[in-house]
Each structure stands twice: as C-alpha cells, then as structure tokens.
C-alpha cells in the first residue's frame, strides 16, 4: 500500500478525547489538529500529562477518539483500523517485548504475525539483529538484556513488517547517551528510507536533532508548530528549551488548568 507523495501520512483534525472515571471526566485531547507530510519526522513535544501518549494511542488504533477525525497512511483510524494497523509500527512507552523469549524469537514472532514466510522471515530477523547490533545476544533471553538493548529490540520488532508510518512514544526515555545516539541514527536511517515518523519526546534536544517539524502539545491542544528554527525565531529564543518553557507555562490564577497537573503518562 503506497502513500502518494502528495498525501500527508498523518492528518488529524479536531481530535478530542476525555477519560471518564469515578472522579469525573478528564479532557486529555482538546481539539488537536496536525498534519505530518509523508517521509518526514514530526516531534510531538510537551510536558508530562500534555496528552502525547493519548494522541499516539488514538493514531495507532489503541484508543477511540470522542470527536474529530484522524487518517493514517490514508486510512481512517476508526473505520479502517485494520488498514491502518497494516501500515504502522508502534514503539510505545512501555517496552513491548516478551522477556521470556530470546531476541531472535521475539523478532521471529513478529515475522510470523506479519506472515512473512519462513525464508523471508529468517532473513528479515537476521537483518534486523545485525542492524541493531543484537546478533551476539540473539539467542539470549530478553530478561538478561540491558535497558538499551531491550529498547533496540523493541524498535526492531516494530520494523519487522516494514511499516510506512512509525510512532515512537518517548523512545529514548531512560537510555544512556550512547544508546540514545544509536536510536537517533536508526531514526535518521528510517527517514532516509522514506518512512514517516511521529515521535513524542520531552527532550528538546531530541526534537532539535531529529525533527523536520515540531508540534508543541500543551493542555490537550497544539499551541505551536513549525520547524525547530522557526519556533526559535518566532519566540526569539536561543534554544527549544526556552520556547518550550514559554509555551507550556501553567496559566496563573483561577484559570489554572487541571489537565496540566495530572501526570497522564505515568498513569498505568
């Protein structure tokens, strides 16, 4: 399923989502609009609780939006969920690997679920192990892997089906600088191959390094959008850090938005 170059890989309009619980309704996405052109990296930047993970959840068909539309790889996430799933790869915040299996077995599981066939599956697994430097650890149980290795395996599993759109939800959180660099290199290689990437991060340097475009999510809304350079220029700021702090400052007084107080990303 190819995406025409003219068609954005991700189109989001008026996306709303709230969570209902005994404590009442909590708005997490409050009318998000976003366009990610095919073959580019967009970083969704925002403080904890801004709704980044929820946005990725809706776009990756895990969550249903209350209102608005979202199309990924040309398909509506609500009505054509299977077509969306066939085009995407998701690396969520929680590392999604089977700790009891080996790295190679995890990848083979993915190859089988993508119906790659025996020979093509084996080849793909070997290729990804090599690419992520996991060949030596291929047959060891994942439980013995370091955090960085698990994260690399996680991303490799996401790529087994050669997705055209990849979601990376805080992919480098908790990684040491070297592992972070390795993942960055992988992201760049993916983009060079034409993959579209939506990345969420709290690290401004990460957005600065990788993203063609940055969207700042705050209180459930996109409060700023542009290239890292544009954002810095508009806000007369020396770094994205300054832009981020200026944009995501909690409003003062009785207007204080409860959404910014909740640590959505850490709720499990």
């Amino acid at each position: 399923m190819s995406i025409p170059a003219t068609r954005p890989a991700i189109e989001v309009a008026g996306l709303r989502k709230s969570y209902r619980s005994k404590a009442g309704s909590q708005v997490v996405l409050d009318g998000v609009d976003l366009v990610v052109p095919a073959g580019t990296v967009t970083a969704l930047l925002g403080p904890n609780g801004a709704g980044k993970t929820t946005a990725v959840g809706v776009l990756s068909t895990l969550l249903r939006a209350d209102e608005g539309t979202a199309r990924v790889a040309g398909h509506d996430v609500a009505r054509e969920a299977d077509a969306v799933r066939a085009s995407i790869g998701v690396t969520g915040q929680i590392t999604a690997v089977d700790d009891l299996l080996s790295g190679a077995e995890n990848l083979r599981l993915m190859a089988d679920l993508h119906h790659l066939g025996r020979a093509a599956g084996r080849q793909r697994v070997a290729e990804l192990l090599e690419r992520f430097g996991l060949t030596d650890a291929a047959d060891k149980p994942v439980a013995t892997y370091s955090g960085g290795m698990k994260r690399k395996l996680d991303l490799a599993m996401t790529l087994v089906g050669t997705p055209s759109v990849v979601f990376l939800d805080e992919p480098t959180t908790g990684l040491d600088p070297r592992s972070r660099r390795t993942l960055w290199d992988e992201v760049r290689a993916l983009v060079a191959d034409g993959t579209t990437i939506l990345l969420t991060t709290q690290y401004l340097e990460e957005a600065d390094q990788l993203a063609d475009s940055v969207a700042v999510l705050h209180g459930g809304r996109i409060v700023a959008e542009g290239t890292p350079a544009e954002l810095k220029a508009v806000h007369a700021a020396g770094s994205l850090d300054d832009v981020f702090l200026a944009l995501t400052e909690p409003p003062a007084g009785p207007e204080t938005d409860p959404r910014t107080e909740t640590d959505e990303e850490t709720v499990r």
Binding site: M1, S2, I3, A5, A9, A38, G39, D82, A83, R85, A86, S87, D112, L113, H114, H115, L116, G161, T162, S164, D193, G194, T195, T196
Partner: peptide, 19 residues
C-alpha cells in the same frame, strides 16, 4: 526501499489460523 515501493503486510483476518 522507499515508502512508495513498500508493500503492506497481508491484511488482518486473512490468516486467523496462522496467527
């Protein structure tokens, strides 16, 4: 390998027994 030439994996529900 570019996004334009990449073919999508088999569609869901196509091979429930294999899954």
């Amino acid at each position: 390998m570019t996004a334009i030439t990449v073919t999508a994996p088999a569609r869901a529900g196509g091979k429930p027994l294999a899954d």
